[in-house]
């Protein structure tokens, strides 16, 4: 509801919105701040907010003790690999549904999206057994495929909503000019589809990066990404708050930065296209 608002009112509203934002952001901010404290300062009573001796030693210790880089590398491979694989499978499907729709298209889309709502535990055990059988347990290949499959419905859906925004008249014009199917895809559709594909890649990368259910259940050490690393780190609680915070900060930093530079896509992606 757009209304006429006075200047003072607008400033006040903005301040309130920022105050709420700070409150929401506090747990994240606190993790980042704690990562720069010593262990003693991290559990100081009363808590120290900004005036402590900033130190980087936690970051060094985390890497030294638990080979943080290996988990980071696994996260990058798993999130990146499953995203690219998913895009390869989903682009043709979404293209077909957006530009050559049939009577069933909407039903198929809704059905695909509905499977995303089913709890993953229903398929966990058979996949676990299958993985043992095929020797895929704790392997990057296996987990990449599973992550691709669980996010496939969302990738198809996102791509579909983007492709639908490409005006059909352009395709008709191209056909009138005698463009073949190949040329149509290569020179007309692809350039217009790239922003949508990029946004979908971003969203899916974030989802796969954060995935905890499957990574916790299907990995042990070799293929474990950052989420599994953090989960394993947090058991002896209280003693290692500063180091755990350093590890957490390194795990969320890529998403914080990606999200900041692609605010629009983040909002649109996380709301499944409802907010543009």
């Amino acid at each position: 509801m757009a209304r006429a608002v006075t200047k003072q009112r607008k400033t006040l509203n903005t301040l309130v919105a920022w105050a709420v934002g700070l409150l929401i952001f506090f747990p994240i901010l606190w993790t980042i701040l704690t990562s720069f404290k010593t262990e003693a300062q991290a559990i100081n009573d009363p808590p120290l907010f900004l005036f402590f001796d900033w130190t980087l030693e936690n970051y060094g210790v985390v890497q030294e003790r638990s080979d943080y880089m290996r988990f980071l590398w696994n996260s990058i491979i798993l999130a990146g690999g499953s995203t690219l694989l998913g895009i390869l499978v989903a682009v043709p499907a979404a293209w077909s549904m957006a530009f050559v729709p049939s009577k069933r298209t909407k039903d198929i889309l809704l059905w695909m999206l509905s499977t995303k709502m089913l709890p993953a535990v229903g398929v966990l055990y058979p996949i676990y057994l299958l993985f043992i059988e095929l020797g895929l347990l704790d392997s990057r290949v296996g987990l990449t495929i599973v992550l691709m499959l669980i996010n496939l419905p969302i990738i198809v859906w996102m791509l579909y909503t983007y492709f639908r925004e490409i005006p059909g008249e352009i395709l008709e014009a191209a056909r009138m000019d005698g463009a073949s199917l190949r040329e149509e895809i290569l020179y007309v559709l692809t350039p217009m589809a790239i922003p949508g594909i990029a946004s979908t890649i971003l969203l899916n990368f974030i989802l796969a990066w954060n995935e905890a259910f499957w990574t916790l259940n299907l990995t042990a050490a070799k293929a474990a990404p950052l989420t599994a690393f953090i989960a394993s780190y947090s058991s002896p609680e209280g003693l290692f708050y500063a180091k755990l915070s350093a590890a957490s900060t390194m795990a969320i930093a890529p998403i914080l930065i990606l999200g900041w530079f692609s605010q629009k896509q983040l909002v649109r992606g996380l709301t499944f296209g409802a907010v543009k």
């Binding site: 994240i28 974030i206 989420t227 953090i230 795990a251 996380l270």
Partner: peptide, 11 residues
């Protein structure tokens, strides 16, 4: 919503 709860759970 964009961050894994496994991670923000620390805080």
């Amino acid at each position: 919503m964009a961050l894994s709860m496994i991670v923000t759970g620390t805080a």
